[in-house]
Simulated assay, not measured.
Amino acid sequence: MAAEGARNVTSETTADGAPPRSAMALLVVTGVSGGGRSTVARALENVGFYVVDNLPQALMVEMAELAYAAGGSTRHTAMVLDVRSMAFSTDMTGAIRQLQARGFQPKVIFVDAADDTLVRRFESVRRAHPLQGTGRLLDGITTERAMLAEARELADVLIDTTHLNPNQLRARVEEMFGADEARALQVTVLSFGFKYGIPQDADFVVDARFLPNPYWVPELRELTGQRPEVSRYVLTQRGAGTFIETYARMVNATASGFAREGKRYVTVAVGCTGGKHRSVALAEELATRLQQVGLVAHTQHRDLGRE
């Protein structure tokens, strides 16, 4: 019945000249308190989305229909939900299915961060967690994670903000959703340092520590992998070329499969010890190779500047 309803809606909208509901860019943004939902909302506004913040979950279908009927810029709409919206309804799966039955194709974005990071963020602004009550911060975080477990499972895009500052998070969201080609598979090649932890949102994690470290070359130590001298040193090492070619082929080979499965965002995390030299140079080169074969790819350097 749901599928039949969706077909009817699509047919009606096509008949009167309006685009189908499936063509509407509809995002559902949720995640843990302190994870960065507000930053994501502002970034989406920057790239032209109509953002509805703190929307009660029970009103998702009505809001989507209003945005669709209004047309114009509201056909790019983001609905931002937090745990407080679940006071009205906790059935996010049901709400998503209702939207799909109406012909919409919503994408769920879940913003997350490690517990210790969330604690530091709340303490830095001297604010209690909304579910903390008379307990500790961690009590509120644990309760919220349990309430949001279903929403996290539904997520099309998981953004881990543990090691991202607000500007980095904003840039990432704008790159994901700020252009028409955001509908195609987009590859983020993310450099990082193993000593700062593996990115939780990585689809592939590759290790560049088998290459000689420019840190031990005095004239390269203070430079980064974005500098030509460092890049040349890294890329001319034995095995570097094979490394790049192998992973470029792997990502390219899986791209069509990801697209068929409805996945639109892939993160390839390239790590070295500190995320300053080898991983940065290899990430830049890998992104270039992926662009050359027609993929939409860009780089981010999570830990650059931390040393």
Rank of each mutant, 00 (worst) to 15 (best):
L55G: 01
Q291G: 14
G133D: 06
N46V: 04
S89I: 04
A87G: 10
R264I: 04
S89H: 01
D160H: 09
P130K: 12
V268R: 02
S11Y: 02
F258I: 05
A184Y: 00
R126T: 02
E12N: 06
V187H: 10
P19I: 11
R7W: 12
R136I: 03
P130R: 11
E284G: 11
K276Q: 15
D16A: 07
V9Y: 10
V217F: 00
G35M: 05
A113D: 08
V111C: 05
L158E: 05
T236M: 10
T267M: 12
T142G: 02
M24A: 06
P218W: 00
V32I: 15
V108L: 03
T90V: 13
K263G: 00
G71M: 06
F258Q: 13
L66H: 06
M92R: 08
V217S: 02
R126N: 10
L164K: 04
L185D: 09
E285Y: 00
G48K: 06
R302G: 09
F177P: 07
G271I: 04
F88C: 05
A149C: 02
S73C: 03
E45Y: 03
D201E: 13
L304R: 07
T143S: 08
A182G: 15
G193E: 07
H163F: 01
L118S: 12
Q226P: 00
R209N: 05
Q57V: 14
D53M: 02
G239S: 13
Q168E: 15
L118I: 14
T117N: 03
A149G: 09
A146S: 15
D82Y: 12
R170W: 06
A146K: 15
L148C: 04
G193D: 03
K276H: 15
A248W: 04
E284I: 08
Q105F: 01
G193C: 09
E153S: 12
S73V: 10
M147L: 15
A101V: 05
V230A: 08
T142I: 00
F192Y: 15
G31N: 01
Q98N: 14
A18V: 15
E12Y: 13
P20C: 10
D180L: 10
G36F: 13
I96F: 01
S85L: 02
D82Q: 07
L158Q: 05
H129E: 13
V125K: 05
L282R: 08
